[in-house]
Simulated scan of single mutants.
Amino acid sequence: MTESPITIVCHVRAPLLLEPVDSQVETLQACESEGTVDDLLLRSWPKEVTRSETSPHQEVLETFERFESWADRRGVSIRPPFRERTRTSLTGETRELLMTPLLCLEVYEDDELVGVFPHSDDETDETATTDEAIATLRTGEVPTPLGELPTESAGENDGTCPDCGDQLVDGQGLFACRECGWLGTVDDAGQFVSQESPTRAEETPTIP
């Protein structure tokens, strides 16, 4: 069982809780009662939301954007369960709509968003469902999402020298290390590339 506080935000489509949604909510409430979940927050949202700055449901749109940002970082998709649709009225007015799922979970560990369920991995054709997430929460564990977070590769442009780890000095795209004399540039992939210099072993280049 994880020692970090677990908070679940459960979004359900208003106004009714129908099977099997109500049983899922009941299970989450049981998790909170049994202590496998520290906090359970229930939120309702409409079936569809107009995607515009004047929409009365800005909180739903902001929630969707937060979910999309999380999914992009992990390399997974939340479309579906979210869907977008264009509707044209008899007067020719066009509206862009966001269709919400019946139920969606946000999983927080130590106040950090670590999962949105359901979601899918297009490369493996796998789907992480709310049922699976709830079953894992019932055991006191945090459900593991599909995909993975990007990791920094060696030599990535993080501002430190690839050779000694000291801070580099940026001279208009030419990077130099005052500690060991490393000299180089950054390639298209964002990685440091060494630039051989005949004086590297003797002195650190001067950066204007």
Rank of each mutant, 00 (worst) to 15 (best):
T36K: 05
T36I: 03
V37N: 00
V37G: 01
V37H: 05
D38T: 00
D39P: 00
D39T: 14
L40E: 04
L40H: 05
L40F: 03
L40G: 06
L40C: 09
L42G: 00
S44F: 11
S44T: 15
W45I: 03
P46H: 06
K47Q: 12
E48C: 09
E48G: 09
T50A: 12
T50Q: 13
S52M: 07
S52K: 06
S52R: 09
S52L: 07
E53C: 03
T54H: 10
P56F: 10
P56E: 11
P56D: 08
H57L: 06
H57F: 14
Q58T: 12
Q58G: 14
E59R: 14
E59P: 02
E59M: 04
V60C: 03
V60A: 02
T63A: 14
T63K: 10
F64T: 10
E65F: 07
E65W: 06
E65L: 12
R66D: 13
R66A: 15
S69F: 08
S69P: 01
S69Y: 06
W70F: 15
A71E: 10
A71D: 10
D72K: 13
S77M: 01
S77F: 00
I78T: 13
R79D: 13
P80A: 11
F82I: 04
F82C: 06
R83S: 13
E84R: 14
E84H: 11
R85C: 09
T86H: 04
R87K: 14
R87T: 13
T88N: 04
S89W: 00
S89E: 07
L90R: 15
L90D: 15
T91Q: 12
G92R: 08
G92C: 02
E93H: 12
E93F: 08
E93G: 05
T94N: 07
R95V: 06
E96G: 07
E96V: 09
L98C: 08
L98D: 05
T100Q: 05
T100L: 11
T100H: 01
L102N: 14
E106C: 07
E106F: 01
V107D: 00
Y108D: 02
E109W: 02
E109F: 03
E109A: 14
E109Y: 03
D111V: 03
L113F: 04
G115H: 01
F117I: 00
P118T: 02
H119S: 10
H119Q: 07
H119F: 00
S120I: 03
T124Q: 09
T124Y: 05
D125S: 11
E126V: 03
E126K: 07
E126H: 07
T127D: 02
T127M: 04
T127S: 03
T129G: 06
D131Y: 09
E132P: 00
E132V: 04
E132C: 00
E132L: 03
A135V: 09
T136M: 05
R138S: 15
R138T: 15
R138G: 06
T139L: 08
T139K: 08
T139A: 02
G140N: 01
E141F: 07
E141L: 12
V142L: 08
P143Q: 08
P145H: 02
L146I: 12
L146M: 10
G147H: 00
E148G: 13
E148M: 08
L149F: 10
L149H: 11
L149C: 02
P150Y: 06
T151E: 15
T151S: 12
E152G: 14
S153A: 12
A154Q: 11
A154F: 12
G155E: 05
E156H: 09
N157T: 05
N157P: 01
N157Q: 15
D158I: 15
D158Q: 14
G159D: 13
